[in-house]
Amino acid sequence: MAQNSNQLPLWEVFIQSNSGAPYKHVGSVHASDKQMALQNARDIYTRRNEGRSIWVVLSENIAASTSDEEAEFFDPSDDKAYRRPTFYQIPEGVKNI
């Protein structure tokens, strides 16, 4: 599909708004190479200073889980409550923990 497209391959765009913040997916652009993809992403997704850093990835390189798989993929973590800090009882007054 993308390979034969004359509209150039599709890239997914991720923007980091501030230093240290996670990269957020904002949409996609068409481009034939990395440089073009980065510039297009900058022109389209950061016109209002929305970001300080951009990642672009060819869409075909993204692997995604589906909602059908959601149950088997994500439910098991739900019953492992000991992974969360709120599971444990710490006496009041104890600091730095």
């Binding site: 599909m1 497209s5 509209q7 599709l10 949409g27 996609s28 652009v29």
Partner: peptide, 16 residues
């Protein structure tokens, strides 16, 4: 237009 083509393409169709 680009954002919307992007959204349409998530449904598996190419912009071409």
């Amino acid at each position: 237009g680009l954002y919307l083509y992007s959204a349409a393409e998530t449904l598996g169709i190419d912009r071409e």
